[in-house]
Design a protein around this nucleic acid. Sequence first.
DNA 1: CGTTTTCTGGAAAACGTTTTCCTTATCATA
DNA 2: TATGATAAGGAAAACGTTTTCCAGAAAACG
Lengths: 329, 329
Amino acid sequence: MVSIKDVAKHAGVAISTVSKVLNHYPNVSEETKKKVNAAIQELGFVPNSIAAALSSKQTGRVALLLDVNRHVQTVDEIPMQYIVGAINRAKELGMDVITVFFTMIQEMDVEEMTRYFQSQSIEGLIVCGLSKQDTALHKLIKSERFKVVLIDAPGVGVHTSNIHIDNTKAQYDVAKKFILENKAKKILYISGKKNGYVSEERMQGMKQLAEELGLTIFTRVGNFSELEARKITMQYAKKRDAIICASDMMAIGAMKALIDMDIYRPVCGFDGISLMGYAGKQMHTVRQDFKYLAAEAVDEMARLMEGHEGQEVIVPHQLIRIKYEDVIS
Amino acid sequence: MVSIKDVAKHAGVAISTVSKVLNHYPNVSEETKKKVNAAIQELGFVPNSIAAALSSKQTGRVALLLDVNRHVQTVDEIPMQYIVGAINRAKELGMDVITVFFTMIQEMDVEEMTRYFQSQSIEGLIVCGLSKQDTALHKLIKSERFKVVLIDAPGVGVHTSNIHIDNTKAQYDVAKKFILENKAKKILYISGKKNGYVSEERMQGMKQLAEELGLTIFTRVGNFSELEARKITMQYAKKRDAIICASDMMAIGAMKALIDMDIYRPVCGFDGISLMGYAGKQMHTVRQDFKYLAAEAVDEMARLMEGHEGQEVIVPHQLIRIKYEDVIS
DNA sequence: CGTTTTCTGGAAAACGTTTTCCTTATCATA
DNA sequence: TATGATAAGGAAAACGTTTTCCAGAAAACG
């Protein structure tokens, strides 16, 4: 393995000089730079990032934390979008590769997590879909031992940023459009997780809307589960004239139930996943660009690593009517 | 940051002794072990894997290479299955973190890849969906600089294993069952990628079957593309009485086309993806357990890293009739 | 012409481990 | 009792960088 040492010898300079060239230090003459670069070329030198990390105490390693519950459902495309978005952006930034973790977040304690990340020399955490019960993770974040970017959860600190769409407004807007268009009066709202941040925000949007329109909205907790939404629909849809779901997966569950019951009710979703295009007719929904969200999260992480303070970032969303033609590539 | 040095001092032993305890060396007395472990506990010592890697020249780092063409289609769940399967198994084995790469395999050259993996101190590559044109990657593999496990591509060497189902047999079996059950005579076969290994194997299965049944099978290259399969179906389905596709995504494309054309033809797929359950009626297909496949690939990588020679691993598949109820969780 | 400042580049410590030798001490064997 | 074998643990080099500090040369200044 050819090292910086060999390069130094071959170029007739000191080790430190090679390092300076490698890291684009200012105080190296053009001439020396050329010599060193020539030596690098000739010897086929490749810097060893492990050694660099050890020496500089900076690994640039970031972990992407995904909730294990999400991909039990294999059709859920959102985690993949996060991964693709994050990794690609990380590469663009020359940031060290992102490692993906599927943690049973609920089951780990702070100690264990800290130990793990520390031993892996991970400096930053991008956390997707944190909920209130994840106490250990909350503690970890508060400890400010790591830079943290939260996707879809609140929290700002010196080392903590968060990024998400305006869920309240999005739910309000899409539901309003949907309700007015369908002249719906008796809404069944299937909400997300109890204690989930986004769930509560979306619920808030529904409440605002209900008040504004003078409607009472019948709500059931669907837990972001397709199956649960299906059951709820089975049970309550007959007496309602429209169904609004806090996620597309639940909207799919609802639609499947309606088909089984052989009745028609308009359904409104949330997320804008491609699967919608396969599963049903066209449908009102909120389109979130998860890849973009993750890419922005990485950018935000980069900011934190440069020493900036945490902040809240709101990314835009779109109201769409999704259908098969939109998702086929 | 408390280091091995601090532990040594606190326990009143030498640095090397602590290291030996950490790595379960045999020649350490129980007494010393206890002292050291106590010190580790008291100081909250966490070993630094970066330093260990540098010193031992063993990182245990493995990269999972996924073809970028695959997840342009956001609904393709297979890459995610690979990721989950591989990462979870890696964790079980205590193997070092798996890094996920989305490569435009065709566009990379050997130098670039080698440099990248070398600089990241990556020792093993799990490659998914290699095809014949990927010359650079082929060179890289032949160079035997890295341990390689190929998923769905042939190749065995001292440092190279491969793992896959028996594609020929699977295609033969599922097609036979499908054809006999539907009493089909005029088959349209939509094949995978030209020059793709699995595509050719599956094609081989079809040929065997055609010969055996005395049928001529009309084949078109679908390139594993839903859209392409849709077009092919539009063009040729009328004159055929059944459609067999080399992948479920293409089967979905075909079914969508049939709906648009308002004609019925039985369709046979391959892969057993959950999306099938959402997109259509029930359908014959071959179920591959991609998570398991990836997990086995990681096991195989572990074997290679222990110094064993490469080998070919065939994993089992299942013939199934997939439907919505099977995939909803 | 002497003095200070600015530029370059080198020497060496440091990062936190692993690993290879050595040195004792203990023990069994002849 | 002498001799070798074995067990336990220590000292120090090595891994490949970064980074701090220092030295010398050249340039700028008065």
